[in-house]
């Protein structure tokens, strides 16, 4: 079971973007609201959300954690073990907005930090939308196969270490397929990227 790499057309969820700005869904006023709306437009024209998913069988006999068959990835920690309880397969998903939104954020940080903040919040909301779109793709495929997906679980959640990000991306070839790279501190470039693990259990 797999999909992509493919486009995941998504728009800014303005309500969520405002939450990221600390506004808790309140509108901004006057001039600030106009600048936020401009950031929404700018972000939607710059971001190019794409994503992919790849499924793997699980090997629970590994001493260190749950191994993904035919991959170097071993999922460690109690939280992911509980998350994948009863699952026969897992699907790794990755989504990204691409390098142009990354460049735009870098440019805005130099020219106008407030516009950078507004754009950043909008981009984060599109990344979340893209992750949700990827989850829906998996849910659709799972349904055809008689499987039910769990919620998303990302490296860095709970006791699942962030430092498996690089191996995660390598396992699904996300560098070549989507242009996502993990740095030495295990964060991704483009920063507006999401990786997640979805468990699949029989209906």
């Amino acid at each position: 079971m797999r999909f992509g790499p493919e486009d995941l057309p998504c728009a800014v969820d303005a309500r969520r973007a405002r939450v990221y700005l600390g506004q808790h869904g309140h509108p901004l006023d006057g001039e600030l609201e106009a600048r936020f709306e401009a950031a929404v437009r700018d972000c939607e024209s710059t971001a190019r959300p794409r994503g992919m998913g790849r499924s793997f069988a699980l090997d629970r006999s590994h001493a260190d954690g749950i191994a993904l068959v035919h991959s170097p990835l071993i999922l460690t920690g109690r939280n992911i073990a509980r998350h994948l309880e009863g699952c026969t397969l897992t699907c790794l998903i990755a989504v990204t907005l691409g390098m142009e939104s990354e460049r735009t954020i870098a440019r805005l940080q130099a020219t106008n930090p407030l516009d950078a903040l507004l754009f950043d919040a909008c981009a984060s909301s599109i990344a979340e939308e893209a992750a949700q779109a990827a989850s829906r793709r998996i849910a659709g495929l799972a349904d055809q196969a008689g499987l039910v997906p769990t919620k998303r679980f990302s490296p860095g959640f709970g006791d699942l270490p962030l430092d498996l990000q690089g191996t995660f991306l390598q396992t699904i070839d996300a560098g070549k397929q989507l242009g996502i790279h993990a740095g030495p501190s295990h964060l991704m470039t483009p920063a507006k990227s999401v990786t997640a693990i979805v468990g699949l259990k029989p209906r």
Partner: peptide
């Protein structure tokens, strides 16, 4: 006020 208002004021 939240961060956007704070930054707009600073601008």
């Amino acid at each position: 006020y939240f961060l956007p208002q704070l930054m707009a004021a600073a601008e």
